[in-house]
Computed example of a mutant assay.
Amino acid sequence: MTAPPTPTMAAAPVHEHITDAMKAPDLVRLGAGVVFARFETMKVYAALGAVRTLLRRGSIVPGQTLVDSSSGIYALALAMACHRYGLRCHIVASTTVDAVMRAQLEVLGATVDQMPPSQSLRLDQERRVRHIHGLLARRPDYHWMRQYHDAVHYAGYREFADLVTAALPGADALTVVGAVGTGASTGGLAGALRNSGREVRLVGIQPFGSVTFGSERFSDPDAIIAGIGSSIPFGNVRHDLYDTLHWVDFRHAMAGAVGLLREHAVFAGLSAGAAHLVASWEAAHDPGRQHLVIGADTGHRYTERVFARHREALDRRTLRPRRIQTLDELSPPWSVMEWARRSHPMPGTAETEPS
């Protein structure tokens, strides 16, 4: 029996700051036509790109305090960017931020105001917005990063697009699959790739209960930990970038996350699990394309709610979405619709700049 070849080891770069080491994902092939981008904290791209751009413009200066709301991974990314560039950080944290994340933020020097427990994603997000308004009224010298609305958060993902181009040079027909969330990651990546001349199909994922793509009439309380949708409108979501939308409930996202670990030994978060589920179905129906799956974070903060319950997980290989033509047909637990890059009328934004 012939032994497998020993991989050639390239010299590892020496980084000037941990953010340089953390921002680039590990690219893992999950099967024919499917590559998984596994991040430790994907939003390092967004935070670094935004902070560098704002410093260059003179919109912020070293020593100033940056404040924003976060359910977790953006908070850590912003705290590390502030650490790198000599800025102060104040995080208004979701109830879902766990003790491990909070400890990291505090050791990095961030001030953390955490919202009380809530069974409602809307209540949690609205509390955070109100709290930020109160902070800014008392501290007008603070700079609100507005990750949900300021397009400056798109800037960092151009670097990720360059990495994808270098790693997958032969895949002219590329499908990007990832959670919509604030819109900056999937939108920023797909937009940068399309601007380079590449033919890119963008597949977005939403939970039920999110206003972003019209599923607010549904309730999925467990999805409060997903971080892939919103109960308030996000200005950074550019609806006309998305070709296809999948709405996935908590149990289906859990099936994808447990399946990803069981099948490929990849320990990733709930949004990554939903993306794995969706990309597996998409690739089976369009095998001629390369599919890039976005895994925004690791699975650590989902240990109790997802991985400790792995025996309850559905077998993702048995799951299928319901195809719909209009939002009126939308229903749990999993629906798919060709969005066709249309715009979407949104209600008035709930998060606005204070007067």
Score class of each variant (00 low, 15 high):
residue 348 G to W: 00
residue 267 F to R: 07
residue 307 F to Q: 07
residue 155 A to E: 15
residue 141 D to W: 13
residue 59 S to C: 10
residue 210 S to A: 08
residue 245 L to H: 01
residue 112 V to E: 06
residue 231 S to C: 12
residue 107 V to N: 09
residue 226 A to W: 00
residue 151 A to R: 14
residue 253 A to K: 02
residue 51 V to Q: 04
residue 65 T to L: 07
residue 279 A to Q: 03
residue 135 L to Q: 13
residue 313 A to R: 09
residue 5 P to E: 03
residue 4 P to Y: 00
residue 274 A to E: 03
residue 319 L to H: 08
residue 101 M to S: 06
residue 14 V to R: 14
residue 285 H to F: 02
residue 262 R to H: 13
residue 352 T to G: 07
residue 183 G to S: 02
residue 79 A to N: 05
residue 129 V to M: 10
residue 141 D to L: 12
residue 57 R to E: 14
residue 149 H to V: 05
residue 256 G to C: 07
residue 355 S to Q: 13
residue 76 L to K: 04
residue 21 A to P: 01
residue 309 R to S: 09
residue 22 M to R: 11
residue 59 S to G: 09
residue 106 E to H: 08
residue 173 A to F: 01
residue 159 E to A: 14
residue 241 L to I: 10
residue 133 H to T: 09
residue 149 H to N: 15
residue 85 Y to I: 11
residue 129 V to R: 11
residue 33 G to S: 03
residue 319 L to R: 09
residue 227 G to C: 02
residue 190 A to T: 15
residue 89 C to G: 12
residue 31 G to D: 06
residue 328 D to H: 13
residue 162 D to N: 11
residue 138 R to K: 13
residue 256 G to L: 05
residue 129 V to C: 04
residue 4 P to I: 00
residue 30 L to P: 03
residue 231 S to M: 12
residue 87 L to N: 12
residue 28 V to A: 01
residue 252 H to M: 06
residue 290 Q to I: 00
residue 144 W to D: 14
residue 318 T to I: 06
residue 316 R to Q: 14
residue 342 R to S: 11
residue 72 G to I: 01
residue 41 T to Q: 00
residue 285 H to D: 04
residue 102 R to K: 09
residue 251 R to C: 06
residue 229 G to W: 03
residue 308 A to Q: 12
residue 194 R to K: 14
residue 133 H to Y: 15
residue 4 P to A: 01
residue 320 R to G: 07
residue 12 A to Q: 10
residue 283 A to V: 05
residue 127 R to W: 14
residue 3 A to E: 15
residue 352 T to V: 15
residue 188 G to F: 14
residue 54 L to F: 08
residue 251 R to Q: 15
residue 132 I to M: 08
residue 82 C to E: 07
residue 111 T to D: 10
residue 334 W to Q: 06
residue 147 Q to R: 01
residue 282 E to H: 09
residue 261 L to Q: 13
residue 110 A to G: 09
residue 173 A to Y: 02
residue 348 G to E: 12
residue 26 D to Y: 04
residue 70 S to A: 02
residue 348 G to L: 11
residue 287 P to I: 02
residue 331 S to G: 11
residue 180 V to C: 03
residue 180 V to H: 03
residue 305 R to A: 07
residue 46 A to L: 05
residue 119 Q to D: 15
residue 212 T to I: 14
residue 256 G to Y: 04
residue 111 T to Y: 08
residue 22 M to L: 15
residue 352 T to Q: 13
residue 10 A to F: 06
residue 289 R to L: 01
residue 185 S to T: 15
residue 54 L to V: 10
residue 263 E to W: 12
residue 185 S to V: 05
residue 253 A to H: 02
residue 12 A to M: 10
residue 203 V to D: 00
residue 80 M to T: 06
residue 49 G to R: 11
residue 215 S to I: 11
residue 296 A to E: 00
residue 291 H to K: 00
residue 214 G to L: 09
residue 164 V to F: 07
residue 114 Q to C: 01
residue 259 G to Q: 12
residue 313 A to Y: 10
residue 240 D to Q: 14
residue 264 H to Y: 11
residue 156 G to P: 08
residue 323 R to S: 11
residue 182 T to I: 04
